[in-house]
C-alpha cells in the first residue's frame, strides 16, 4: 500500500450473529484526491460497507481488514473510533431532514461537532460554522445557522450537512446516497459541491445506486452485487468497457436519454438473492445470461488492465 492510499478495504466480510452473511468479500481502495463511487442495488451491502468504515455497526462479526492511513480500523478501541469519527472520517446521509436532530438549530449541531474535536470557544466554533455554510453556498449563513432543520429547504439542509461533515477538515468523506432525496436540479448543485471538495485533497467515498451520479462525481468505481465487489476500476474504463456481466446488464437496463428508444429495455430477469440465500459460487450466476458450469465456484479476482473483475469469463 503506497503512501497516497487513504483507505483500503481487503476482503471484508460481515455476518450477523445468526450466521447470515451481509458482506462476502469487499475489497476497495481510495487514494487522496480520489472519489470512489460504490454502486449497487438495495441490499447489495454498499451502505454496510460505509458504516463499517465509520465503525457504526455494533452487532456484526467481521473479518478482513479496513486500513485507514495504515491503521487497521477493525482493531481499534471505542475511544480511538470516537476520535476518528467526525474528525478524520466524516459522513453525510441520504435524508438531511432526519439526519439532523429536528429539535435543535442547525448551527448548534455543527458547532457541536467542531467542539467535540477541537478546543474552541463557542464563538470561534460558530465563526467556523458560518464560514463553512457560506462556502457551501448557503445564502445568509449566519441567519441559516439559527434556523431549525425543517425551516430550511432540502437542498440547503444537505449543504448544511456537508458543512457539518467538513467542519473538522476530514481526510475522508463518506456520502451515502447524498442526492437521492433531492430534486434533479438541486442534485446537480450538490454534485458540483462534492466535486469541488476533491480539490482540497480529501478522499470521497460516494455510495449510490445511480451510475450517472458516479460518472459525474467520481474518479473510480466499485460495483457491488449481493455483498460482493464484482468489478472495480477507474470510472472511464468501467463505463466505457464494463467487464462483468452484471455491470453490463446494469448499464444496459438504464433507459437512455437520447438516441433511439428501445421497444424493450434489456432488463435483468429475477431478483437479487436474499442474504440467507446467496449462491455459494458467483453471486450473479442465477441471473447471468452468460452463466457456465464453473460459475458454481466463486471466481477469483482477475486484473484486466486498470480494472479488476470477479468473473470466470476472464479467468485464464
Amino acid at each position: 500500500m503506497d503512501a497516497e492510499t487513504l483507505l483500503s478495504i481487503e476482503d471484508l466480510r460481515l455476518a450477523l450473529p445468526d450466521g447470515r452473511v451481509l458482506l462476502d468479500g469487499v475489497s476497495l481502495s481510495l487514494a487522496r484526491g480520489e472519489a470512489l463511487g460504490v454502486v449497487g442495488e438495495s441490499g447489495s451491502g454498499k451502505s454496510l460497507t460505509a458504516m463499517t468504515v465509520m465503525g457504526l455497526l455494533p452487532d456484526v462479526r467481521s473479518s478482513g481488514a479496513v486500513r485507514f492511513r495504515a491503521r487497521d480500523l477493525l482493531m481499534q478501541d471505542a475511544r480511538a473510533w470516537r476520535r476518528l469519527r467526525g474528525k478524520e472520517i466524516a459522513m453525510i446521509f441520504q435524508d438531511p431532514m432526519t439526519a439532523f436532530l429536528p429539535v435543535r438549530r442547525v448551527g448548534a449541531q455543527i458547532d457541536e461537532q467542531i467542539r467535540l474535536h477541537e478546543k474552541l470557544s463557542r464563538r470561534e466554533a460558530r465563526a467556523r460554522t458560518v464560514r463553512l455554510l457560506g462556502e457551501m453556498g448557503v445564502p445568509d449563513p449566519a441567519a441559516a445557522a439559527e434556523r431549525f432543520p425543517h425551516q430550511l429547504s432540502g437542498g440547503l439542509r444537505q449543504r448544511a450537512m456537508i458543512a457539518m461533515a467538513l467542519s473538522c477538515a476530514p481526510a475522508l468523506l463518506i456520502a451515502d446516497e447524498p442526492t437521492t432525496a433531492l430534486d434533479v436540479t438541486v442534485q446537480a448543485q450538490i454534485l458540483v459541491l462534492l466535486t469541488r471538495l476533491r480539490e482540497t485533497g480529501a478522499g470521497l467515498m460516494l455510495i449510490t445506486h445511480d451510475m450517472g451520479v458516479v460518472a459525474q462525481a467520481c474518479t473510480h468505481v466499485a460495483v457491488l452485487y449481493a455483498g460482493v465487489v464484482v468489478e472495480r476500476g477507474p470510472v472511464r474504463a468501467v463505463l466505457d468497457a464494463p467487464l462483468h456481466p452484471y455491470t453490463r446488464a446494469l448499464l444496459a437496463a438504464m433507459p437512455p436519454l437520447d438516441g433511439p428508444r428501445p421497444a424493450h429495455l434489456p432488463a435483468i430477469a429475477g431478483q437479487p438473492p436474499a442474504p440467507d440465500a446467496r449462491p455459494p459460487g458467483c453471486v450473479f450466476a442465477p441471473r447471468c445470461p452468460q452463466v457456465r458450469p464453473d460459475c458454481a465456484i466463486r471466481p477469483p479476482v482477475v486484473r484486466m488492465g486498470e480494472q479488476e473483475v470477479v468473473c470466470v469469463l476472464y479467468a485464464s
Binding site: L56, R82, R85, T98, F100
Partner: peptide, 21 residues
C-alpha cells in the same frame, strides 16, 4: 433514528449520544 446515527458519526461519546441527543 437517523439523527442518533449522525451524532455517533460526529464522534460523540455514548453519554452524549444518550443524554444529549
Amino acid at each position: 433514528e437517523d439523527a442518533i446515527r449522525t451524532a455517533r458519526a460526529k464522534g460523540a461519546g455514548p453519554a452524549r449520544v444518550w443524554l444529549w441527543h
